[in-house]
């Protein structure tokens, strides 16, 4: 696909495929078009040319939107938002049971399950604004997980969050992949916590400049886990 905002292409003939059960990281320098790629995939933006298929359907017109989970970039709650963790996560479940329908027992169970999956059980009745940044990010992930997605798309979900939340994040994503055979497309520069779990790394800079396994990336001298600074430095040097 080729995508732009009217001032030349932001993504130039990019081709990418994510398979069921696969854990793919999408990396690239700032402004390389990662969020734009996600926006196209999610049906929020139409490409100038090219085709996009999401779970076998047209993006933005899923017959069951619950099959898709999305954690947007910079998702933060206003500190004065008077809503509990459970209330916020339950809005994610609307994608599965239909917004006009009352939640049923299975829906409430799914919400509880998602909250426990990110280890926020003891905070479920707390106001989201009172939680730390890392915990709020986990609320967003639980919200996306609550609809039992087959594909989870995350835009820099762990940027700047603490190690505990990173580890938690890794566990919940791996759980989704292993127990529910879901696929994960993760945009992040901090891949240390998930380095051993990734199936593929895709490097984007207007085009796909690398698409391969973490091992192949390592053979180019870029390791994800050990030297956390390797990846950002390498990305900056890309031309």
């Amino acid at each position: 696909m080729t995508v732009g905002y009217g001032h030349g292409p932001v993504l130039d003939r990019v081709s990418l495929r994510v398979n069921r059960g696969e854990f793919v990281a999408l990396v690239g320098p700032n402004g390389s078009g990662k969020s734009t790629l996600l926006r196209v995939l999610l049906g929020l933006l139409t490409p100038e040319s090219g085709d996009v298929t999401l779970l076998g359907e047209h993006p933005g017109r899923l017959s069951n939107p619950g099959r898709l989970g999305y954690v947007p970039q910079r998702a933060r709650f206003a500190s004065d938002l008077p809503a509990t963790v459970t209330e916020v996560v339950a809005t994610g479940r609307l994608a599965r049971h239909g917004w006009w329908r009352r939640p049923r027992d299975e829906d409430r169970e799914a919400v509880t399950h998602a909250i426990n999956a990110v280890d926020l059980g003891e905070f479920k009745d707390r106001r989201v604004g009172e939680l730390s940044g890392g915990q709020q990010q986990r609320v967003m992930i639980a919200k996306a997980l609550s609809s039992d997605p087959e594909l989870l798309v995350l835009d820099e979900p762990v940027a700047g969050v603490d190690a505990e939340s990173q580890r938690q994040f890794r566990d919940s994503v791996v759980h989704l992949i292993e127990q529910h055979n879901g696929a994960v497309l993760l945009v992040s520069h901090e891949l240390g916590a998930v380095a051993d779990d990734l199936d593929r790394v895709v490097v984007l800079k207007q085009r796909v400049v690398f698409d391969g396994t973490p091992a192949e990336l390592r053979s180019r001298g870029v390791s994800l886990g050990v030297h956390a600074e390797d990846l950002p430095l390498w990305l900056e040097g890309l031309d």
């Binding site: 999610l42 049906g43 929020l44 899923l62 939107p65 619950g66 999305y70 809005t91 994608a95 917004w99």
Partner: peptide
């Protein structure tokens, strides 16, 4: 944006 993605 997330609401839109969720099909609302």
């Amino acid at each position: 944006e997330s609401a839109r993605v969720a099909g609302l």
